[in-house]
Amino acid sequence: MENIIQGKAYVLGKNIDTDQIIPAEHLVYSLSKPDEVKMYGKYALSGVPLPEGGLPEGNIPFVKDGEFESEFAIIVAGPNFGCGSSREHAPFSLKVAGAKAIIAESYARIFYRNCVDGGFVIPYETAEHLNEIVKTGDELKIDIEANTVENISTNTVYKLNPLGDVFSIVHAGGIFAYARQENLMAQG
């Protein structure tokens, strides 16, 4: 696992639910056939009402119309990110679009587990109200060992909560890699 994640920020509000992350009508696509997988990138965060996407200005889509990947690698949001359904298609779509990490004040449980166990994007928590400070397009740099995020655009460093119990799963790259490492996959 790389120790530094760097990229542009995409800022959202609170309670971003999985219907906003990937609207249910798109869940029919395969998550393994490459020509269909890219559709999850195309529609990532497409359910966010336009004025609420790409804060503070808004009206900035995560993925531009007609494209399959986002220019933003780090999502910054308020509390309760990923609430709603269990669809693993949600963190999957963010990954396919090119997101590497999320920094939110808190997460809904199933979304958080899916991020970690599926090894899609790293779900960082922070006590700071970063989505009220960071602007969409700011260049951010996450230092995984130091548990910090630097806003290169404003030259400010913020603390991230340590990943704690799930660090070893994130580090392994998901629950299967972790379970093999720890010899947990025997049946019975």
Binding site: L31, S85, S86, R87, E88, P91, I110, R113, N114, D117, G118, D165, G174, I175, F176, A179, L184, M185, A186, Q187, G188
Partner: peptide, 20 residues
Amino acid sequence: TGIGNTDAAFILGTGKLWEK
């Protein structure tokens, strides 16, 4: 409780899952 596909695949093979 609800889980995602990866966790479900883990259960399919092992019959087990971690939970807090």
